[in-house]
Design a protein around this nucleic acid. Structure first.
Lengths: 241, 241
DNA sequence: GTGCGCGATATTGTATACAATAATGCGTGC
DNA sequence: GCACGCATTATTGTATACAATATCGCGCAC
């Protein structure tokens, strides 16, 4: 049983003292962020009543948000059994990174050729924020921001459909990182991102494509994709805000 | 006014005399099929009460199915205004086929190298069914089956994530075809599909990749993507919001 | 003591009720 | 006669109630 045994109280965002409760879309976004930043670990049970109580909404709203999350593959819905934060298998992890290898280098190429100075500034902003989070010791957020960098590149390419796919793949990569990341200390990615920015500044498509390709390869090799099952996630109140 | 004016009664599947009403998942599948086969045209309003009455379920179930359809981009949900069969813009159509051009040729390559004799038989079955539907004059179904052929190829490649993406792209292509298809009489695709099968039978990856690439190009050129229809939509939408 | 069966409890799936927002139509004023 | 405004109606968004299914625990037989 690789699944979190019992539902922890999960004080997600402290007490929701905001006057107006979130609607379905907003609830989805909050839960999505919580998963991305690894506040909700893979395998964790997401009870409808629990979430409803925490956010002060009805189960109707919760179910809508959970359904959206499941379409993003961040949550697995088991009929009559409830919702769980997704636990990508090793096979699925490989699959996701194969898809990224297929989509992202070519997208980086297109983006680099189209990149404007404002785009470069925006990308640099992402990197800075990532460094900041790392400095603050907030690994979960750093990983999230690292993903946002890739999404920002996809946005520059201005191909919305591919961008949506990449966005989903980054999402799922966050879970994969939570499960299989081995090189926690290093976080050497930033250098790869720096190199990418340089290629973007030169509008050098081929170089951007090549850099992205090797960056993704580097990411995959930094995962331990041998172990078959993940250890039971032992979390009590790992989510203290 | 490119939007279907008023909700037609839409006797989708005649009277639902089945004893047990469909659950949310089944309702989604029925609506999905109806859209794929062009029974529900792009832009058509999908009133919750209407669908609920037709299928003998509650609005809760309908809303769940509509949400799933919107995640597949077959339906557009406008907050507080309802659900409509999606009307992909010319830009979106181009976008979808660019994504297909990025994903499908490489997938065809992988699939061809892995294809077993049973796979070939299954693919041939798709083509036969497609011919049959065409002979019966059921164009909507023929287009649907033609898409299933592409999905079958993705399945053979055994890369689930990419397969899911391709499946969604095919789905949306069905709407694009409904809106922009010009060469209705010809339906020359079958020959392209025949050629693909031949490459699969030889396990000739490079040839399959090349055939898929040109097949997709051929598909795009058979669409009329000169932006003509978008004007009335934008007028209406601008007024609406 | 252990394993199975059955009832009690908890949780999810669906239906209904209510609230909020948008669409409609009619009346009035110009 | 036309356009604007307001009230009415219709439709969607959310909450609650009920039904179906799964989970858990206790008792009993072996």
């Amino acid at each position: 049983m690789t699944q979190t045994p019992v539902t922890p109280p999960a004080i997600l965002s402290d007490v929701e003292k905001n006057a107006t409760p979130p609607n379905a879309q907003q609830l989805f976004e909050r839960l999505e962020l919580a998963i991305h930043e690894h506040q909700l670990p893979p395998g964790m049970k997401l009870g409808e009543d629990d979430i409803a109580d925490i956010y002060g909404v009805s189960r109707t709203t919760v179910r809508s948000a959970l359904q959206t999350l499941s379409h993003q593959r961040l949550v697995e819905l088991k009929r009559n059994r409830g919702a769980f934060v997704a636990q990508p298998s090793v096979q699925e992890a490989r699959d996701v990174f194969e898809a990224r290898a297929l989509l992202e280098p070519r997208t980086a190429y297109s983006a680099a050729e189209r990149a404007t100075p404002e785009d470069i500034v925006r990308l640099q902003g992402h990197i800075d924020a990532e460094h900041e989070a790392l400095h603050a010791g907030n690994h979960g957020r750093a990983i999230y921001l690292s993903g946002q960098f890739h999404i920002a590149i996809a946005k520059i390419a201005d191909q919305h459909t591919i961008e949506a796919f990449i966005t989903q793949l980054i999402s799922r990569s966050s879970l994969i990182v939570a499960l299989y990341w081995e090189r926690r200390a290093a976080m050497c990615e930033s250098h790869a991102h720096d190199a990418l920015i340089s290629a973007f500044a030169d509008q050098d498509g081929p170089r951007a494509e090549e850099l992205m390709k090797s960056h993704l390869l580097d990411l995959v090799t930094s995962l331990d994709l041998r172990n078959k099952t993940s250890a039971p996630v032992s979390l009590k109140d790992a989510l203290a805000k």
